[in-house]
């Protein structure tokens, strides 16, 4: 285990790298006319990012015990249906999370 001083130094390096990642496009591309790939990224990145982030929440489940994945699947489906029906983000998210809790109590005893 790293000592507290080493962990502090390592955290400083981590903070710098993460800030670098977040600032990268602003450092090198701000003020320039964006090339074709960038206008593509601007239009499609939110769609790609949200879909990949949502999917990753499911690929990280333990699929060797599908019963344990059921609450996530059913609550996720409920979120989609709720959102298409009411189109109110809070209703969809809170409704889905409440259902997840309920199903979790039933399926993961």
């Amino acid at each position: 285990m790293l000592s507290l001083a080493e962990a502090l130094a390592a955290s400083g390096v981590m903070a710098a790298i993460i800030l670098f990642c977040r600032a990268l496009p602003f450092l090198f591309l701000a003020g320039r006319k964006p090339p074709a790939f960038l206008s593509f990224v601007e239009v499609y990145m939110p769609a790609i990012a949200m879909t990949v982030l949502a999917t990753a929440a499911y690929t990280s489940l333990d699929w060797s015990a599908p019963r344990g994945a059921l609450p996530s699947i059913l609550a996720g489906a409920a979120v989609v249906l709720l959102h298409l029906w009411k189109r109110n983000a809070l209703v969809s998210i809170l409704g889905g999370t409440a259902l997840y809790f309920l199903l979790g109590a039933i399926f993961i005893a």
Binding site: P46, A47, M50, T51, L53, A54, A57, Y58, S72, A75, G76, V79, V80, H83, L84, A89, S92, I93, L94, G96, T97, Y100, F101, G104
Partner: peptide, 20 residues
């Protein structure tokens, strides 16, 4: 604590639906 972190998954799903 279990369960509340599903709110983030639900949020990504909602925002993906919005993008659709």
């Amino acid at each position: 604590v279990r369960g509340l972190d599903f709110a983030l998954t639900a949020m990504f799903i909602v925002l993906a639906v919005e993008q659709v």
